[in-house]
């Protein structure tokens, strides 16, 4: 399948050595994108209250965490034990596994910027894209969203509220991109040449350690374009050839190694490949 090329390629470089795992990005993401807090009972749906409980947030396979922070460790015993945190947004793959499988074109990679779109009103909820995505970046609305009474007054204007039964995922806070373009037009800036920092997703803005750098990977003036080429940079599961637009970087070799699978034998070469195998 051919990879569609875009003039602009929005991407992230996440410096794992700077992520302390605090969770601010995850919270900002939920607030920005109208992800309802997880409540177990719907006081307005008596039948549901009588028959079933909604999910507990500790069931991580039922949460809606567009941006999920994984905890990695080097597997060594005390005191050599080391821990790292890896925030995982949608990778916005250049060659996405999820897009070609969707039977109804609810997800697509077609717009300038290379963000993989997910259109909730089109989605029929077959979950084939979730089966396809090896990053588990896609989430299903198992229940209708539910805010404690009154809290829906704080809905963000930036993301439509999804009903149950559709798939959703990180879209680099896409509405912010659309707004940035509008602001650029108003200010007389070419929307195709947004300056760095003109458009940033909520997680990037919230991160207190600046671990996430965001920009146009195709624009050499943007920091991400340089960082992506760092010898410490790698992409998750690079070997699968999905060509993600999210890069990671770490000076710790064990972290880089955990970025991809290495069958016995190709261990070292693979890490090297991972850190150099992108242009």
């Amino acid at each position: 399948m051919q990879v569609k090329e875009f003039k602009i390629k929005w991407g992230m470089v996440i410096d794992i050595d700077k992520c302390s795992g605090c969770g601010a990005c995850m919270v900002s993401c939920q607030v920005e994108n109208n992800i309802a807090p997880m409540t177990q009972e719907d006081p307005h749906n008596h039948l549901q209250m009588m028959t079933t409980k909604r999910d507990d947030p500790s069931n991580k396979l039922r949460t809606l965490t567009w941006l999920n922070v994984y905890e990695l460790n080097n597997g060594k015993a005390f005191p050599e034990h080391d821990v790292a945190y890896l925030p995982r947004p949608c990778m916005q793959c250049g060659h996405p596994a999820c897009v070609p499988v969707c039977p109804v074109v609810a997800t697509d990679k077609n717009e300038e910027g290379g963000i993989v779109s997910q259109i909730y009103p089109r989605c029929i909820g077959c979950r084939y894209c979730m089966a396809a995505c090896p990053y588990h970046a896609r989430y299903f609305n198992w229940w209708d969203p539910l805010w404690p009474d009154g809290m829906d007054k704080t809905l963000s204007p930036n993301a439509s509220v999804r009903p149950r039964g559709v798939v959703e995922k990180c879209n680099f806070c896409h509405t912010r991109y659309m707004k940035a373009k509008d602001r650029a037009r108003e200010e007389g800036i070419d929307p195709m040449e947004l300056p760095e920092g003109y458009y940033v997703p909520a997680c990037v803005e919230a991160c207190p350690t600046g671990a996430i750098v965001f920009g146009d990977l195709n624009n050499p003036e943007h920091k991400v374009a340089q960082l992506a080429k760092s010898p410490h940079s790698f992409r998750l599961l690079e070997k699968l050839g999905l060509d993600p637009q999210v890069y990671y970087m770490s000076k710790r070799e064990w972290v880089r190694e955990q970025g991809d699978n290495h069958a016995a034998g190709d261990h070292n070469s693979a890490v090297k490949q991972a850190s150099q195998g992108h242009e």
Partner: peptide, 26 residues
């Protein structure tokens, strides 16, 4: 039952993605 939005089941015909195996299956 399995699809999250049964009311949209007909989208498979109206908005088919010809690349998807699932479209063919539907």
């Amino acid at each position: 039952m399995d699809i999250g939005q049964p009311g949209r089941a007909w989208f498979g015909y109206w908005h088919p993605n010809v690349h998807s195996m699932l479209t063919e299956v539907i």
